[in-house]
Design a protein around this nucleic acid. Structure first.
Lengths: 329, 329
DNA sequence: GATGATTCATGCAGGATCGCATCAACGGAG
DNA sequence: CTCCGTTGATGCGATCCTGCATGAATCATC
């Protein structure tokens, strides 16, 4: 398969409809010298390799000579009118093949992730986002973009922001909405918090409570640093008391288990799975809600699928609160 | 660390005294585009990366733009006057780093193997070469070339030749001396073969025998295809009989064990380790010797250490027969 | 043994990239 | 708010590489 010109003119634009290339060709584009040597090594024949690469034979002949001169090692043995690999060349070729494979795959992956039709969105969300919310969102999005793939990460706020900065995530849903100079955030919804009490608790049969009524209860909360912990402290303070912390956990769902086991009460979003031994009580005062927002790194050009998904999310404000009927807006 | 010019002028010759480069630089030489991107990715700063690579800033700026255009994906995000990696860029950078590492190591390895002082020789020899011969040779060679390293492979003739053709071996000692158009061979020595019999055998107390005296004995030999098997058949034919094969093995040393166990007699070179239950009898007629030679692929330019070792071997003709006192010249 | 077909290497023109200098834009300091 | 240092992008001449054509050398065939 030969392509015209010197190979450099396959400069594909990022617009839609741009053609795909086999991994082989990506490697040739990204690391021409090594791809040339790999081709020669595979054929042990310069003319055939040249035909294979779609370049003139003279180019390869010169390039191989330069490569050997640069490396200072004879890679090819010229017998009469043929060439073969020296042991050194053979050893080098093995590593070059591995390396080119890696590059080819990487290029294809990056390219595929940016494919407007079948690209990838790396998307993070909170454990407490509800078992239905995110799958429903994605299902709905894929009705319009059926082949877009998702890499889903379920974690807590700080970690997700860190992973965005590391380039592992394209965007994430968090609460509270973080503030940082390198982040763009949008408020999407708010989610009610419930006072969770064990089944036999004195408040267990109530539908609604004021938070102050739980002032004397032992609380189970997340460890300091989690958004929900901070919010619990703030709301209790607003209700006029400092909560007695009986236990600190790392997973919101385990907290619900601790409550069911009678170790205390907790302030939590609606449950991901209904848990028999615990009751969720609406909190009338103070207003117990947390904001849910979407965040991404500022100034980063998006691939098409990511841009599409962002637009989609912003168009769905007010549908992110899971089973805890969202407040208005 | 900056070097002058455009980087292309570090064309090192293969002569002695040529300077070494760190792995980093090899990668830059072999795969400039990727090395450039890797540097930019590491710093997330074009000017610093340019300083680091020793190229002007404009080159990198242009190269990155070309790379992104070729790939069709935005790898860098320009915020105001700085740049940072996009998630796609970050993912790509990881693979690029791995790939460059591989290439850098490969280049260093190939280069090191060709280093006249501390290079490597991949050297194959027969199982039956004796436990002392090869180590002694190498010890002696290293008196003059103390830092040269060896990759030793112990195998049989056909396999070693195949591995030379695959580029895994630089040269090998074999017997019989093979003939092939792509091989260069030199006769180095000849090794006497002994008739090995069990301890209680009727010939066990003899010092020398004619091979014909063992015409009625059951023989244990190597499988067809081994040089030593062919030689056994030929010698027996010359002695006027066709040997009755009681057992065929794959390892010369196991044959000796079979003889000691009383399963038959064998025609073998001197033992690698003395084995109590077997006796080695000199064979007076026919003349039972096998030739030992060195072989390498024709037309392959050698690295310095390999060339040195070849010259050394050729200068030691007549000292390869191990414990079986070699016949003259 | 001479001829013909291959194969790798080399002279020469064109083009792409490189390197130098400069420009435009952003951000911190006063 | 203005100035100045810094950063990434761009115009222009030099250089290297590419690509076409041809040369030199080898192997097969008649």
């Amino acid at each position: 398969m030969s392509y015209p010109g010197n190979g450099k003119d396959i400069r594909v634009t990022s617009g839609p409809g741009s053609g795909e290339l086999p991994a082989e060709e990506w490697a040739a584009l990204l690391s021409p010298r090594l791809a040339q040597f790999a081709a020669v090594a595979r054929h042990e024949h310069i003319t055939q390799a040249a035909r294979d690469l779609g370049v003139p034979q003279s180019t390869l002949s010169r390039a191989m000579a330069r490569l050997e001169a640069d490396l200072g090692v004879a890679l090819l043995a010229r017998h009469g009118r043929n060439v073969s690999l020296t042991p050194a060349g053979r050893a080098f070729a093995r590593s070059v093949e591995r390396s080119l494979g890696e590059i080819g795959r990487a290029a294809e992956a990056v390219r595929a992730d940016a494919d407007p039709a079948a690209g990838k969105v790396a998307f993070g969300f909170l454990h407490t986002m509800g078992p239905e919310t995110v799958p429903a969102l994605i299902r709905e999005f894929r009705e319009d973009h059926p082949r877009v793939r998702f890499a889903l990460v379920q974690s807590y706020g700080e970690d997700m922001i860190e992973r965005m900065r590391l380039g592992e995530l394209d965007l994430c849903l968090t609460s509270p909405i973080p503030e940082a100079p390198d982040l763009v955030t949008r408020r999407l919804d708010e989610q009610r918090l419930f006072l969770v009490v064990p089944a036999g608790h004195r408040l267990a049969e109530r539908k609604r409570v004021r938070l102050a009524e739980a002032a004397d209860e032992p609380f189970v909360t997340l460890e300091p640093g989690y958004g929900l912990r901070k919010l619990t402290d703030v709301l209790c303070a607003r209700a006029g008391f400092i909560p007695k912390i009986a236990f600190e956990g790392e997973e919101p769902e385990t907290l619900r288990g601790l409550v069911a086991a009678g170790l205390g009460v907790a302030l939590l979003p609606p449950p991901m799975v209904p848990r028999p031994g615990a009751r969720d009580l609406a909190v009338t005062a103070p207003r117990a809600v947390r904001e849910i927002g979407v965040a991404w790194l500022a100034g980063h050009p998006d691939t098409r699928p990511v841009a599409d998904f962002k637009r989609f999310l912003l168009g769905r404000r007010g549908r992110f609160a899971g089973t805890g009927r969202a407040a208005a807006r």
